[in-house]
Simulated scan of single mutants.
Amino acid sequence: MSDSDKTPSVKLPDARDISRTSFTPHGINRGKGSLKRPANKAELRKQRIKQTGVGLLVVAIIAGVAGGAWALTRPEQNFTVTGAFGKDPKISWPEVAPYTKGKTEKLITGSGDALKEGDTAFIHFETYQWTGAKEHEEKSSSYAEGAATTLPVGGEGSGFKRLDDAVKTAKVGDRYLLTIPVSELGDTAEQTDLKKTDNVVFVLDVVSKQYEITGTQAEQTDAALPKVTPNKDKIGDAPTVEIPKVDPPKELVVKTLIEGTGPVTKSGQTLVTNYAGKIWRDGKEFDSSWANGAPANFPIGVGQVISGWDQALVGAKVGSRLLLVIPSESGYPDGNESAGIKKGDTLVFVVDVLGAA
Rank of each mutant, 00 (worst) to 15 (best):
V10I: 10
V182N: 02
A294Q: 08
S9G: 11
E329P: 05
N78C: 02
P75V: 07
L115F: 07
V206L: 02
I326K: 02
I306T: 15
P249D: 05
G146A: 08
P249K: 13
S22T: 13
Y99N: 02
R37T: 15
N336K: 14
K227M: 01
G335K: 10
V241M: 07
T109K: 12
G340H: 03
R48P: 01
V228Q: 02
G277L: 04
A144W: 00
D310E: 01
V246F: 13
T229H: 04
E242W: 00
V305K: 14
A296W: 02
L57T: 14
E43H: 12
P299Q: 14
T80I: 10
V253S: 12
T82I: 10
T346A: 00
E242D: 02
R175Y: 06
E285F: 10
L151N: 01
P152V: 02
D14A: 05
K266M: 01
I49L: 11
I235Y: 03
R37E: 03
Y275Q: 11
G159T: 08
L56R: 09
S208Y: 01
L313N: 07
G236C: 06
S141F: 05
I258N: 10
P13L: 02
A291N: 13
T80F: 08
L115T: 08
S330T: 08
Q311S: 11
A66S: 06
S267W: 01
L115C: 09
G340Q: 04
R48C: 07
S320E: 00
E145N: 06
D193G: 10
V96R: 11
A63Y: 09
K134C: 05
W280E: 02
V172W: 09
F349K: 09
I18F: 10
G173V: 02
G293A: 12
G319M: 05
I123C: 04
T169Q: 06
I61G: 06
P226N: 04
I49R: 05
E242K: 14
G118Y: 11
L323S: 04
G155I: 04
P94A: 03
V96K: 12
F85V: 09
S92G: 13
A144S: 11
S183D: 05
P248V: 13
D345Y: 10
I243H: 12
A224S: 15
V58N: 09
G110L: 03
G132Q: 04
